[in-house]
């Protein structure tokens, strides 16, 4: 099994719901975004447009982060291809961050709270237990939710249904069908990582994509 995701850039409305859902699910401290959006203006008036590219760890089939990790903290789970970090093994050398072409990783030097000088909120107190200062963190496809048979929070909370999650090894799964039929592409394919996150182009012939 290889979990993966297809993000339809035509459906995406740049609302940041995925980013907020991820923050809420994972209680990530300020400055740590497992899901984030690359936003950029392209072209010039009157032909300017805004590019909005939702990002997360691509759970690459050939993850460059895994091979450079000296401790084995970063590893790929055999059962479903999810790339995980063992916080007890991570030494915080950050080699994995320089190796990731998709900027999926964050170094948490210390655990910050959202309201400086006011201590942790009850939510932060409950959620911060999973973060470890001095280690690197990233999206784990919501491993806890996967275990319960749920899809990742970003996919579950996308109001435009732009994210389709499933098993890429199953040719009949929803993401596999989208990849095959709609011409999905991977980011930076020449990097050789074979990402498990695919994108459907924002500009493509007007037909129902699912």
């Amino acid at each position: 099994m290889r979990y993966g995701m297809v993000i339809d850039l035509k459906r995406c409305i740049s609302c940041y719901a995925c980013q907020v859902a991820c923050k809420s699910e994972n209680a990530t401290p300020p400055g740590v975004l497992y899901a984030w959006a690359f936003r950029q203006e392209q072209g010039e008036y009157p032909n300017a447009r805004q590019v909005y590219l939702p990002m997360l760890c691509n759970h690459c089939a050939e993850p460059s982060c895994v091979e450079v990790c000296p401790t084995g903290a970063t590893h790929k789970r055999d059962t479903d291809g999810v790339v995980l970090i063992d916080p007890e093994k991570c030494v915080g050398c950050r080699a994995c961050m320089t190796a990731c072409p998709y900027h999926a990783r964050y170094y948490v030097d210390k655990i910050r709270n959202y309201y400086p000088g006011q201590g942790l909120t009850p939510y932060e107190t409950a959620g911060y237990g999973r973060h470890n200062a001095g280690t690197v963190e990233k999206c784990n496809f919501c491993a806890d939710r996967l275990q319960k048979g749920q899809e990742p929070a970003c996919a579950a909370n996308c109001p435009a249904m732009a994210r389709t999650f499933g098993d890429l090894d199953d040719p009949d799964s929803a993401p596999s069908l989208l990849i095959r039929r709609e011409g999905a592409f991977q980011l930076l394919p020449d990097q050789g990582n074979d990402p498990s996150v695919y994108y459907l182009p924002a500009e493509r012939p007007a037909k129902e994509s699912r």
């Binding site: 895994v66 091979e67 450079v68 990790c69 000296p70 401790t71 084995g72 093994k89 991570c90 030494v91 915080g92 050398c93 080699a95 170094y107 030097d109 200062a133 001095g134 280690t135 690197v136």
Partner: peptide, 25 residues
């Protein structure tokens, strides 16, 4: 001093088969 967890430094010896940091240590 650069490591987030210097007390775990010896764990960097774990992957000489793939990591140049391991080989360096």
């Amino acid at each position: 001093g650069f490591l987030g967890h210097p007390e775990r430094a010896l764990r960097m010896m774990a992957k000489p088969q793939s990591s140049w940091i391991s080989r360096g240590l």
